[in-house]
Nucleic acid binder design. Structure first.
Lengths: 229, 229
DNA sequence: CCCGAGTCAAGAGCAGTGCTCTCGATTTAG
DNA sequence: CTAAATCGAGAGCACTGCTCTTGACTCGGG
């Protein structure tokens, strides 16, 4: 993809990658707030100040890891959506993919969906990768609508007021899908992340843990709730 | 409540309280991971090492703050439940109380429902206060069941397998409530926290933010989903 | 009343952190 | 070929959590 022009450029790209890898490794074992630039530099056999040639601050390193995490999760979700048969199966497959990735990479999940890092303001560059899962789900709804298997539940209330505009933004990415379906999709989306976070952060211990069956039940019921036959 | 026996005891209790207050203040402005023992000790005009007479480590201070946060939120939820009329109103009031408290104390909310603090293992003493909101909601269901306003939705699947045992634990705290209602209540509960977390952590920006109407819509729809007339 | 036991705040110190700045060495580009 | 850009290394600053020791204080039993 990038036949880095000069030797310096290639070395720089490679080292940048190695730094992120080492940081990711440390993230997985130590957690986000214990990620230490000095420890990363030690692992790479260089001096801590040299790291600042590649990432101007610890926060910038974290930003890079956040973007990578969003993209990794987004890619998983997209392939899950692509390889499924019916829209309902696709929806459920994306939900399962999110949970599976979260369980595989708990610290990276916590990094993007847990409490924001102290005093850290997410830069613009994160919002596009952050939307990939939602966009994948909207695509499934759009496809379900097109193929006629989306039956908007009649007992769903018609959104009113500000929600019309807000859901309108989503409707642009899922043309033809009724607003009340989109409203329920947002309910299902927030439930998905709430459930995964609860499981990962130990909030289900003593009740629904292990959560495999609860997860399948919840995603299934909410898919029906949305109207995905 | 405690007429601390000796002067030393009273001074100790008072200082313990002041330390927690200062720490909470710093938590609100700086966030959990920037909470510094030395800064707290500076604010109190004492030396950092003196703090260790009251809290053996930073993690123990955090644990105290976590328990206080769970109890504060739990108390809010319980009074919200108590002061409402119908079970449906009580359910919605508890949901609103959770959101309101979270918006008022975002850092404390992040402390208990966000990513767990690095390398920090929640001690036993936190699990009882952590359950108060859920117990309040279960009480509402139980009351709704007793007064006959709980109509289990007929399209809700009957829980099977492991979920029967898991929901059975909840059923002990809400006698008579059908398992399939409890399953949907867990869906609503996880949705509630997912939605609040999304709002607080900036995941709704660009879509459902501000979330007031979405919140009212979601909690209302899910109350119906559970079967609370 | 008094004296030993327990408790206290203070201070020094250790190992670690993010980050800045300077200094030579190397590589690139004109 | 030379000037500019980039690089890693090192020293150093202001922090952090935490430990240990020291001297002063308070408390309770004799």
């Amino acid at each position: 993809m990038n036949a880095g022009r000069t030797a310096r450029d290639r070395a720089r790209a490679e080292l940048t990658h190695e730094i992120k890898d080492a940081a990711r490794r440390q993230l997985a074992t130590e957690g986000a707030e214990r990620l230490s630039l000095r420890a990363v530099s030690r692992e790479l056999g260089m001096v801590s100040s040299a790291l600042y040639r590649y990432f101007p601050s610890r926060d910038d390193l974290l930003t890079a890891l956040i973007i990578d995490a969003y993209n990794a999760l987004g890619a998983k979700a997209e392939t899950a959506a692509k390889n499924a048969g019916t829209p309902r199966e696709a929806w459920l497959a994306v939900c399962r993919a999110v949970r599976a990735w979260a369980i595989e990479h708990p610290q990276e999940y916590a990094l993007i969906y847990g409490s924001p890092v102290a005093g850290y303001k997410a830069p613009e560059s994160t919002i596009e990768p952050a939307g990939r899962v939602a966009i994948a789900l909207l695509g499934i709804l759009s496809q379900a609508q097109a193929s006629g298997v989306l039956v908007p539940p009649e007992d769903a209330p018609e959104p009113a007021g500000l929600m019309v505009e807000q859901l309108g933004v989503l409707a642009e990415m899922a043309p033809g899908v009724p607003l009340k379906v989109l409203a329920r999709a947002m309910i299902a989306l927030t439930q998905l992340y709430g459930m995964v976070s609860f499981e990962l952060f130990g909030q289900l211990v003593g009740t629904m843990d292990p959560a495999d069956e609860f997860f399948a039940d919840a995603t299934g019921q909410l898919a029906t709730f949305i109207g995905i036959g």
